[in-house]
Simulated scan of single mutants.
Amino acid sequence: MSTDYQRAREALGARLRELRFTCPAGRLTGQQLAQRLGWQGSKVSKLENGKQTATPEDVRAWADATAQPEAYPELAARLAGFETEIRSWRRALANGFRPMHEGLTAEINRSSDIWVWEEAVVPGLLQTPEYARHVVQRYADLLEVTKGVEDAVRSRTQRQEWLYQPGHKLRVLVWEAALRSLICPPSVLVSQLDRLAGVIGMDTVELGVVPLSAPVKIVPANGFWILGDRLVVAEDWHAELWLDDADNLALYRKVWKTLRESAAYGPEAHTIVNAARRALKP
């Protein structure tokens, strides 16, 4: 998690603690506030110490429980501010790609189980170096980042050692569009598709492909990673979101499982990958 983001969480936590201390009817203990809210005492502690990300509902309930509802707009503004700006790509990439990639690599290495959905690109843990170079360069051009592209490519390549460690499992879902997107030259994509076909059947990889022709129960948008039972990393054009609260974890698990219902596996997935390859090189 970025330092800026963590500092913002801690600052919000300090403000929440201040509201608990200045309750008009008298200072509340953490346990007393938890009882008023119907929460576990540990949740109050985690929020105040920046160990958990508050939701808008959390800060509204906190303001009401401390009899200071007028504080809610300020709390909501703080929350919205660090949710959207602190994790912005421009801020995260101010020193190039390397620090951001190192942070994600550390989180991946802490995980034994990872669930991935990608609608537009082959996931980083399965990318060839040349394909990764083109993907990273596209982001660098868009965001005007001038350094660290090769560091990012090396980091992505080294990160793949995770796949060969005992006890690890990568469950990947990709939309067929990701197999056909010419984010790179056709020759590079051919090699990437060969790599993808090669991982089908690996003990540590479960690859599902959602065909373009398959009916889906949810809009197949916004790539994301679920790292164990503790963290979701989701991407948008302006920012990378790191979400660790129970509600968001549950939501993204539900999204992943819903998309999985439309996916093809095994020989069927292999057929879709090979069809995309043949379309590039008849």
Rank of each mutant, 00 (worst) to 15 (best):
Ser155Val: 01
Val121Arg: 06
Ala120Ser: 15
Met100His: 10
Lys281Ile: 12
Leu196Gln: 02
Glu83Thr: 09
Pro69Tyr: 11
Ala67Asn: 10
Leu196Gly: 06
Ala92Ser: 15
Leu163Ile: 12
Leu251Pro: 00
His238Trp: 07
Glu261Arg: 15
Leu182Asp: 04
Leu93Ser: 03
Gly266Glu: 08
Ala177Cys: 02
Leu179Asp: 05
Tyr139Leu: 11
Thr146Trp: 03
Lys257Asn: 13
His134Gly: 02
Glu74Cys: 00
Gly26Asp: 09
Ser88Gln: 06
Val172Cys: 06
Asp229Lys: 12
Glu261Trp: 07
Val135Lys: 07
Gly201Cys: 05
Thr55Lys: 09
Leu28Pro: 04
Val216Lys: 06
Glu74Ser: 11
Arg7Asp: 14
Trp225Ala: 00
Ala214Asn: 07
Gln52Glu: 13
Trp162His: 07
Glu268Ser: 11
Ser112Met: 09
Arg87Tyr: 07
Pro282Asp: 10
Ala239Val: 13
Ala63His: 08
Leu212Glu: 15
Met1Gln: 10
Ala14Gln: 15
Lys217Cys: 02
Pro69Trp: 13
Val216Thr: 15
Ala80Trp: 08
Glu10Val: 14
Arg27Lys: 14
Glu70Tyr: 09
Pro56His: 03
Arg110Ser: 11
Leu37Thr: 09
Lys257Phe: 09
Ala246Gln: 14
Trp237Ala: 10
Glu206His: 10
Pro123His: 05
Pro267Ile: 08
Ala234Pro: 00
Asp64Pro: 01
Leu93Pro: 05
Leu241Ala: 12
Lys147Ala: 11
Arg156Ala: 07
Leu231Pro: 04
Val116Ser: 03
Ser2Glu: 13
Ser187Trp: 03
Leu241Asp: 03
Val205Asp: 05
Leu33Gly: 04
Tyr139Glu: 10
Ser213Gln: 14
Arg230Met: 04
Leu19Pro: 09
Pro24Tyr: 11
Leu16Thr: 05
Ala264Met: 13
Asp203Glu: 15
Glu261Leu: 12
Glu176Pro: 02
Arg260Phe: 00
Glu102Ala: 14
Asn274Lys: 11
Asp203Ser: 12
Leu243Thr: 01
Pro211Cys: 04
Leu47Phe: 12
Gln127Leu: 02
Pro220Lys: 03
Leu179Lys: 08
Asp203Lys: 14
Arg91Leu: 10
Leu142Ile: 12
Glu161Asp: 14
Leu104Asn: 04
Leu33Trp: 07
Ala94Asp: 11
Ala221Gly: 04
Pro220Met: 09
Ile86Val: 10
Pro56Met: 01
Tyr5His: 12
Arg15Phe: 04
Ala239Glu: 10
Val199Leu: 06
Val233Thr: 07
Ala54Ser: 13
Leu189Glu: 08
Glu10Thr: 13
Gln137Cys: 00
Arg20Val: 05
Thr128Gly: 11
Thr3Leu: 07
Glu161Tyr: 02
Ser155Ile: 02
Glu119Ser: 14
Glu18Arg: 13
Arg20Ile: 06
Gln68Trp: 02
Thr157Gln: 15
Lys147Asp: 13
Asp58Asn: 15
Trp175Arg: 07
Gly124Val: 05
Leu212Met: 14
Asp247Val: 15
Val172Pro: 01
Ala92Phe: 01
Arg138Cys: 02
